[in-house]
Write a protein that binds this DNA or RNA. Sequence first.
DNA 1: ATAGCCTTGACT
DNA 2: AGTCAAGGCTAT
Length: 480
Amino acid sequence: MADSSKQPQEAEFVHTRTSQRCYCCLECVEDSGELAFEEETEPTSISVSSLSMASSPEDVENSTFSGNSLLSEFSSTPRKRPKTKNDKICGVCGDRALGYNFNAVTCESCKAFFRRNAFKDNQIHCLFKGNCAIDLRTRRFCPSCRLQKCFEIGMKRDMILDETERKARMAKVLSNRAKKTTSPSHTFIKTEPLDSDEFRVESSNMGSPSCSEPMQSPSAGSSHMEPVEHLFQQVPREQLPGDPQLYRKLSDEEQLVLQDIALCYETTIATIQELEKEQCQKENYQNVNDLVNNSEQCVRQLIKFVKRLDDFRLLCQEDQIAALKACVMKSLLLRSVAFYIMEKDAWLTLKGEIPTSILREATGFSSLHNLHVSYCRTLKAIVQNNFTLYGLLQVMIIFNPDGHNVTDRQLVSNLQDKYISLLKHYLESEYSFEYAQEYFVAVLDKLSELKSLSDRHSRILLQVNPSQIEPLMLEILNLK
DNA sequence: ATAGCCTTGACT
DNA sequence: AGTCAAGGCTAT
């Protein structure tokens, strides 16, 4: 999903992806974004939207600048590309440029510079007045001003692949290489499994990969947990009917959408799994402020996910923001399920495994803790590590017609319907018409349950001290 | 650390 | 097949 599917311009991005995968191709082909892109004639303008104070979307995502606005995250300010191959000039230093790098025309060296330094903006400082001239000769002298100029011309640091995406990319390269030398039978992501161990964590990282194991370690035996035998029981694979007629045959388009969603969700969730498992650092989770701030990475991943979701672009900008804000808490909860380790009653986080008890200790609410853990266990029993299901759930959460401040509720509802239907089809294709029903009901049941749990969590936000909350979280949770 | 070159996958 | 835009490698 990483790679060059990340296109430099929002308008083009929509078109590129939708022209192949989206249900609404006709609309997308003639999408006004594409037309606007062609008609735009001011190549060097830096759009200053009256609605947006941020100069670039990554201001939002990384929240290190002031004046953030989520609006800028979804606004497209297309610039026309240079007409010919050879008249490209690096927008940073004026050196010869070969093409777009991270959304702006730059030379190779500024491209590499940006890749190395885009996330160090608060570590490097100008030794002069912060307005050093940057040209081919002086570009090395002041990294701070060079980086600032990179941002000014529109370079986007969220286009730099993160560790997970890089690994995915390398995995693909290696897999292709292997294919060339050996047999060609390899699928990168399957959409079948509920019993899978293709949770692509290195096997040792998650303890036992099979969460359906009816075992509970002694350390996990808290009283609030349902016994495993009360959890959703999957139909053993050998019990499923053998006759292909009893399964739905997904259309090519449905398969593509499902694959896309699964991969999207997987890549935005896998970062943490790649990290080495360290000892728990409970001191990082002492109060609600810490809980909120430690969720920032998940919110960034959520933003990445929605940005890759074709249908999300069908919403107007205001609804995109509204839908995003409205789904944050539920999305975080869903992620907590994905990161939940049943055997240990813990979550895998950036800082290692954290026992779920931190939720009780940080908030002071053991009832909330019980509810949350119970939710993790019950949903995990259903979804296990199936990214297709997580992805579908995430999409259905995003397209919530009841979302606060959403204006075009009918459109949002229609989009949700589409994915509910896709979920049903998917389950029918995996578990047969006979068994799909109970999965379907179970999944939707958990989806509706999410609302009350999310409301409970939202209430503890009253405890936060806004002055101690990261800007992105302040904005997205409306804590300002 | 920088910058040029190379390899690669996605897309046209 | 060609183009584009990612990341990797490596001499400086």
